[in-house]
Design a binder for these strands. Structure first.
Length: 104
DNA sequence: TGCTTGACATAAT
DNA sequence: CATTATGCCAAGC
């Protein structure tokens, strides 16, 4: 559904620079609680060249979700590092430091 | 209309 | 800490 997708985009756009959020969080904030997968769907449908910070959206394990194209994972890592997000060993990100805390 | 799939999440092993 | 199993819900076919 495009409406849900728009809502997801709206939330993703709110992620501050240098922070990351999980799909579950995005889904909840978008009012689609429990539809974490739809978030991934929406992002997959996201056209390349979009100004949406999709790279700030990761899974609950603190890692970049493996995509069809492995190359994009590296790109995402680079984008995150460029924003000040440190990626530890095993491509892990500390939510303790870089987790986005949205206000209810 | 019904089965399969998926940029997920959480718990168990 | 890595892998597996199960639950979840919507979109594709």
């Amino acid at each position: 559904m495009r409406e849900s997708r728009d809502r997801i985009y709206q939330v993703v756009r709110k992620i501050p620079r240098g922070k990351v959020a999980t799909y579950g969080q995005i889904a909840t904030l978008a009012g689609l609680k429990g539809h974490a997968r739809q978030v991934g769907y929406a992002l997959h449908d996201l056209p390349a060249g979009s100004a949406l910070p999709w790279h700030r959206v990761i899974n609950a394990q603190g890692r970049v979700s493996p995509r069809a194209e492995p190359s994009y994972v590296g790109i995402q890592h680079r984008l995150l590092e460029a924003e000040g997000v440190e990626i530890g060993r095993g491509d892990r990100i500390s939510f303790k430091r870089f987790g986005w805390k949205p206000r209810k």
